[in-house]
Design a protein around this nucleic acid. Structure first.
Lengths: 214, 214
DNA sequence: TCATGTGAACATATTCACAGCT
DNA sequence: AGCTGTGAATATGTTCACATGA
């Protein structure tokens, strides 16, 4: 379920507010979903609530973490340390919660040895050794589109079975390998699509000095 | 439809290979979807194919671009020029295809004036003026989670009705405003979830060292 | 003859509404 | 009394299979 991480985030945010218990209604609001949907999703994991009372925040948080697999260690390797790879290496969401970046690889030899987020950039040819040494199961591709498929092939050859792809390029992988694509420009396009349909409401969006009505 | 950008990318890639015409089958393969789904999606836009022949790549590309709204100019403002904002400012997918970054804003005054991707970083307080001056309709939030909601509120107050949020935080917005959330750590969590379910298949995935059993 | 466009069949997801437990 | 967990109802999305038209 793609919504579990959202619930987890909502639970963490409740914990920060020292809230120990909550109803499906409250949690649903915090997560931005319908309460019936939330209850159905959670009931799929097991019966972790108490009728008439609600859910224990800490307990539910642990159960969802366990379901997702965050109670174990996930070594990650990032390939392509350009602007985006650099940002990912420093992104706290990547280093927390069981994910641990064990290596940063780049094809550009002039950058090898450079320190990013406390790790030295290493050569792409070291991929296989690193994957085996650390038991890496998840690879992140932040290279240009042209390099993405061959990087992906190498990852798969090294034994990686889960790939997070930021390159604007559809990757083909063998059966049993998962790829998730994060396409930054698609997201903008989807916004533009909706925005275009709203626009008629403000026929003179008059860029000069007036966003709305003049 | 969230798949239009995918089709568009596939068409662009076909054009690069000098392919002028294609069947729904070919395009569907390039886009990684089922051909019936592709035909249904396209038929929803209009009848742009030719029975017995297929689709004209260039023509279809234009029609999809128009449908998404990429034939017009979309000024974009990015708030939060940390590692991620920096990467976004330099990301070619953001500057191409009708999207034009008109300003980079950051709350940290010590960074104002710094040049990133050819633009000077400016103060967050200039948001409203910039939105009105350029007719900005899309705002990108790349700030820490703690600042995201207030940045979003300011954006909405300035007239922005489409927000792309990279901060790990659910934003609440008034009716009529669209938010798309790109949550990098959720993506990793979803991979971990599937990975966890695969793992049992290889009890001794036996990396040289020892990722699993000792 | 061939591939699109589409109704009809199927599958999945969401929401409703309430029985059952605390 | 109140809130979860869930079957039944609805809505949405996908795939099949073929009539239609180039």
């Amino acid at each position: 379920m793609a919504r579990l991480p959202v619930y987890l985030r909502a639970l963490n945010s409740l914990l920060e507010s020292e809230i120990r218990s909550c109803s499906s209604e409250e949690l649903a609001t915090a997560a931005g979903v319908n309460s019936a949907k939330l209850r159905k999703d959670l009931s799929h994991l097991g019966s972790y609530g108490t009728r008439g009372v609600g859910y224990d925040v800490e307990y539910l948080r642990y159960q969802i973490s366990r379901e997702i697999g965050l109670t174990q260690d996930w070594p990650v390797v990032i390939v392509g340390i350009g602007n985006l790879g650099h940002a990912l290496a420093n992104y706290s969401g990547f280093t927390s919660r069981g994910f641990r970046t064990v290596a940063l690889l780049d094809a550009d030899a002039t950058r090898h040895g450079e320190l990013v987020a406390g790790l030295k950039i290493r050569g792409f040819h070291e991929l296989s050794a690193i994957v085996h040494e650390h038991g890496v199961a998840i690879g992140v591709i932040a290279t240009p589109a042209a390099a993405a498929q061959s990087v992906c092939d190498e990852m798969v050859a090294a034994g990686i079975r889960s790939v997070l792809n930021f390159a604007p390029m559809v990757l083909s992988v063998p059966e049993g390998v998962d790829v998730r694509m994060v396409d930054l420009s698609s997201e903008l396009q989807i916004l533009a699509y909706h925005e275009q349909r709203k626009a008629p409401l403000h026929p003179e969006a008059a860029p000069t000095g007036t966003a709305g009505v003049a």
